[in-house]
Nucleic acid binder design. Structure first.
Lengths: 221, 221
DNA sequence: CGGAGGATTGAGGGAAGTCAATGCCGGTGG
DNA sequence: CCACCGGCATTGACTTCCCTCAATCCTCCG
């Protein structure tokens, strides 16, 4: 079995010296998760979770039972630093979306690391600052705009992430996308249909995660 | 003129030694703002803004022109750390709500401080983690629940902040509260009226910031 | 081939936003 | 000191978006 080395792929760690990385690697617990497993839920011990391969979704559950998808974790991203730093419980759930390898770091090990490695604290601050800004933008966005606008912006950002490609594949199920956009599968379906009718996109109706194409040079929001 | 000493009232700094605090104090720019002034807006230089007395509102402006109030800054809270740490622009605006004294810290001074004071980085991480968790909770809340629920929860949290008091005063104009709750003044007005009709609250129709009372042992959400 | 979960489509209703008019308070200037 | 003005709050009527419920279709997989 090929060992995955989390430290080298995580922006949080990969700027450290090889020696330091080795030390972290020795503290880390490697685990494999199957598709659809719950990696973390409220009540579990605080844990730094680093995705080595595969993907996870981080979501909350609201009073009415609907889930709000907060973000996807792809290889190199992590979750749980906040809880490790003493933030109040957040009622977060983390599930895998596919077979996933992850590295886990215990709270005690993590805090010890932080105290011994000032560089790490600075890096973490930097990453957190960006994440904070993104979250705030997401908040504004979800709050203020209509579903259609949110969807368009999402597609556009997806396209930008892949270097402005016109063809793109939605990296999750429609059900999850609707949760991410703060709406329902039904509404999402309708809105996609609408964008299609307006010739703004065309869909290669594939399996679950649809392949689609931004027509006419993309989407205006 | 009485000098305000920001460092001693800010959780971010007040755990440091007196010597360290004095040093920070020497770097800080003290400024007074009048009511309704804009303290910071997109395009301005990154700045750490610490509120010594008075209050400010931090908000964003959405595509449709409506503003989303993100949080209020009261004495001891600060804003701008993210931008100082290199986070992408956020299109934040910061206005004073009343006459306000603030301490400003330049980006260069701030980063120098951070590098020289590891304790500070850790503290900042801790505070940021909590703030991050709060923001995430706010996201979920704004997204998922109805205006009436958001309002009730807000009133309840306000009451809890003042030690469970039944009488409370809303610390901002209705217009701002509606932006904070992600709705419009009209809807807010209607919802307050509704809570009143149900005998859940009673209002001492004061001036702008209303005084109100939670009846029947409070609000159920 | 059949089942299950996801996606789609349709019908209907409800929550909240918009537009517009009026009322209220507080501040300003004569 | 009082009258006027301006911003904010309130109320009403209407509209719109999107959620809910329910049925059907599709796709993947055993």
């Amino acid at each position: 079995m090929k060992e995955h080395h989390c430290t080298s792929i995580v922006p949080l760690f990969n700027h450290l010296s090889e020696e330091e990385q080795d030390k972290i690697e020795s503290l880390v617990i490697h685990r494999h998760f199957n598709k659809g497993e719950t990696v973390w839920q409220p009540g579990d011990d605080p844990l730094l979770i680093i995705v080595a391969s595969g993907s996870m979704k981080v979501y909350m559950i609201a009073g009415n039972g609907r889930e709000q998808l907060l973000r996807l974790l792809t290889p190199g991203s992590y979750e749980g630093a906040n809880a490790l730093l003493g933030a109040r419980a957040q009622d977060l759930f983390i599930d895998t979306l596919e077979a996933t390898d992850a590295c886990l770091l215990r709270k005690s090990d993590f805090t010890a690391l932080l105290e011994k490695t000032p560089k790490l604290a600075l890096k973490l601050l930097e990453i957190n600052a960006q994440r904070m800004a993104d979250t705030e933008n997401q908040t504004r966005f979800l709050m203020m705009e209509r579903v259609e606008t949110r969807l368009s912006a999402y597609l556009l950002s997806l396209s930008l992430l892949s270097g402005g490609a016109a063809d793109l594949e939605i990296p999750m199920k429609m059900k999850d996308l609707s949760a991410y956009l703060g709406t329902t599968p039904e509404t999402l379906s309708r809105k996609l249909h609408l964008l299609e009718e307006t010739n703004l996109i065309s869909r290669k109706g594939k399996k679950s995660s649809a392949m689609l194409k931004l027509d006419r040079g993309g989407i205006r929001i």
